[in-house]
């Protein structure tokens, strides 16, 4: 994670999300959850940004990509954990894996948000309110 501004944005989003899920209104809680999951998505995406502009596209086999330097391999003894590398090694790639991870996480949070919105609608029908303090029929 290289950019200070990006880190501050992510932390502010986490703050807003945490504030919202502590509200009493169901809808605000759901919005808070969405904001939290987007903050996490940004966090994941930010772990794959190295200072660089090359596109990590592999043409040919794994071996030739290793030979040409598109894929770099682990060198645990010297602290190189591919693809996490320090600036010294002089690579200029954006890690593509984290973008795939974020895509998966977005799809999952979409499904859960859809389910939870329908649930909130049905709760509103049953209880005639969206105030969480009035939903106390179960005592935990």
């Amino acid at each position: 994670m290289n950019s200070v501004l990006l880190s501050i944005t992510i932390s502010i989003l986490f703050g807003i999300g945490t504030f919202l899920i502590l509200r009493r209104d169901i809808i605000k809680v759901i919005i808070g959850l969405s904001i939290l999951s987007h903050a996490v998505n940004l966090l994941i995406a930010s772990t794959g940004i190295f200072d660089g502009d090359k596109v990590p596209i592999i043409t040919g086999s794994h071996e030739s990509a290793v030979a040409s330097g598109t894929i770099f391999t682990d060198d645990v003894v010297n602290g190189v954990m591919s693809p996490v590398v320090s600036v010294m090694t002089g690579t200029h790639y954006v890690d593509p894996l984290v973008q795939a991870l974020v895509l998966t996480a977005i799809v999952i949070s979409l499904a859960i948000t859809a389910f939870i919105l329908i649930l909130a609608y049905r709760i509103h029908e049953e209880y005639k309110t969206t105030d969480l303090n009035e939903m106390k029929r179960l005592r935990g």
Binding site: S37, I116, A120, I123, M135, R137, L138
Partner: peptide
């Protein structure tokens, strides 16, 4: 049904935070 929904809402929100 209303009890089930209240329980499910609790379960879903807490596990969602867990997965975050």
């Amino acid at each position: 049904t209303s009890d089930k929904m209240e329980a499910t809402f609790k379960y879903l929100i807490l596990n969602m935070i867990g997965s975050i």
